[in-house]
Design a protein around this nucleic acid. Structure first.
Lengths: 122, 122, 122, 122
DNA sequence: GTGGTCTAGACCACC
DNA sequence: GTGGTCTAGACCACA
């Protein structure tokens, strides 16, 4: 795995774990890789993974069973999706519109573009 | 002036100067405030402004005349706009679409939303 | 380390690092000393080294891995040599010839001199 | 007149005056332009010219007749040429050779180049 | 441990 | 007056 350099690695990893959770790679209720395993997979210092897991724990995405490992909390997938939704409509979308406005891009131009790359289904 | 906490002050100032340039507050070819002046206005250390100016100089936004001060380069406004435009279409827009896709937001939903907040003109 | 007085310390250090890179002291791809280490070695303030490293980074000579340190970019040695070569043929050489011309020094005189100090191999 | 930005303007002007002296534009013994005249011609602050003249005065290139102006000293042309000659053989030439050596440029390559741009007469 | 940012204050060369 | 460099020292986020 390679990382962008302007975001902290532990947050990039946290994001990728969240995507694995919503994508079903790490199913709700199941154990996720140990700190050392994931560190090896990612080619990263275990401390960094530790930090990621702590972060995800305070976000209530995973929890820890002592001596056993970390597990995806049952409600995690919904929680993640909600979070993303909220972030999208409260931050990303308005910022997107603001930037478009600054550049003098009109609504109809935007809509045309959206239709063009219909990565989003009608 | 007060600053957000997750971006470095000198970069926030750089951004605000770029906006002043495109907004015509600092017209192309004209002198911008001296390091010390701006430091006073912003309530920061002159070194911080120095860093901002150095940054803007390597970006070819401003230019130095020895012993006189920094000046907006003639091409600066276009250069800034181009940069923003590029960033928008290559980074912000695709990421926006990707996120929308992940959330299962349809194109028509997006378009409706855009019409709602018509901060962007038809 | 002691420095000449008419060039800034941070640039002199940058130059010496470039020479260490082309000389193989800091091999391509390898880590260079940490900011604090080098500051100690050179007897200067860490900020000064920081400035050097920032400069070298914008020149694409070195590269940063978060929390680990700075590394010589793989292409650095060639890049440095190319830069020197370009500088030589576009700046130093013509200026040299111009000065010789002003002094009325003939080509054959120059060639004689070159042979004399055959620091340059035949 | 436009200036390079990494050398002080007053020294660049001093150099251009020296060239005018050896070129006969300002003949030995004659008056040179007043501070204000030259400042106007060069598009520069009179203080800067003042500094240039002071510099040239300490180098014994020009001298000052109070209330009248600055004059080229009779021996100036020879003195300038000597200075250039010395500088050339003690500084420029050895540095030139050193750089060529670092780049692995051989003596014969240099000589070929010199013949090519025979701005220097045979 | 690593770099990154910021402040305060100094000194200098230059216009 | 202008910028440019340097130091000392602090604090922070990150690996």
């Amino acid at each position: 795995m390679d990382f962008e350099n302007n975001k902290s690695i532990y947050l990039q990893i946290a994001e990728s774990i969240r995507e694995r959770v919503v994508g079903g790679v790490y199913p709700a209720g199941e154990k996720i890789p140990s700190v050392r395993e994931l560190a090896a997979e990612m080619g990263v210092n275990p401390n960094t993974i530790m930090r990621t897991y702590t972060e995800l724990q305070t976000m209530e995405i995973i929890d820890n069973k002592r001596g056993i490992g970390y597990f995806v909390k049952p409600e995690a997938p919904q929680l993640i999706m909600e979070g993303k939704r909220k972030n999208f409509f409260e931050k990303i979308f308005p910022e997107f519109i603001r930037q478009a406005g600054l550049l003098g891009i009109t609504a109809s131009q935007l809509k045309t573009r959206i239709d063009q790359l219909h990565q989003v289904k009608k």
